[in-house]
């Protein structure tokens, strides 16, 4: 658009009129545009998470005890029968979705020997609260491990206007740490 609007040799009145129309119409069309944002694909996330290794797709079957724990952490009923993850040695990567307010947030988490290594928001679908994808927020989870009662060993700072999204990311982080322990122990 910048190119079209900035063409310097458009010196005839007709050309200016037409270029002006194009810019105006495109601006008007763009103003009514909204939707989901993908920050990273699953493949990009896995490549980022396992730069040197070759992770293997695995499924963790959720038995009743694990499902009870997951329901307690997520504060909701859980109907899944399995949880997909990728593993390379003692490191695991999880791509999960959890509803913030209205739409699912897709997030990728990597867990290693010393707790959470990375949290990345892959897709954000809500119209508001997208700040949770910023590094200042996701950095808080790095190094986090589970403390008593499947809680994180630290408090996570809220973001004004994105409380539900913050809660969703925090819940999933706790769940992933619990699932990681289970995956390594099986």
């Amino acid at each position: 658009m910048k190119l079209m609007c900035g063409v310097s040799d458009a010196n005839t009145r007709l050309s200016r009129l037409l270029l002006g129309s194009v810019c105006l119409f495109m601006a008007m069309a763009a103003s009514s545009y909204s939707g989901h944002i993908r920050y990273m694909s699953n493949d990009e996330f896995l490549a980022f998470s396992f730069e040197e290794g070759s992770p293997r797709l695995q499924f963790l079957i959720l038995d009743q005890a694990l499902r009870d724990d997951a329901e307690q952490i997520l504060e909701r009923r859980l109907g899944s029968a399995r949880q997909r993850y990728w593993r390379d040695g003692e490191r695991t990567a999880w791509i999960m979705e959890e509803i913030g307010k209205e739409y699912p947030i897709t997030m990728g988490l990597v867990v290693g020997e010393h707790g959470i290594e990375h949290v990345r928001i892959l897709v954000y679908r809500e119209p508001r609260g997208g700040e949770v994808h910023e590094r200042f927020f996701t950095r808080q989870f790095e190094g986090a491990v589970l403390a008593n009662g499947n809680r994180l060993d630290r408090s996570i700072d809220n973001i004004t206007g994105a409380t539900l999204s913050v809660d969703a990311v925090t819940r999933v982080s706790r769940l992933v740490l619990r699932l990681h322990d289970e995956a390594l122990s099986r």
């Binding site: 008007m28 763009a30 989901h36 993908r38 997909r84 979705e97 897709t106 897709v123």
Partner: peptide
């Protein structure tokens, strides 16, 4: 020249919002 632009503008106003597919792995029921 302006007619196609008008048509494009009309289409733009009714354009579908971005859609990023959610993962069916997480469908619980």
């Amino acid at each position: 020249l302006i007619l196609p632009l008008l048509a494009l503008q009309g289409c733009g106003a009714l354009r579908a919002p971005d859609f990023e597919v959610a993962d069916a792995e997480n469908l619980e029921e």
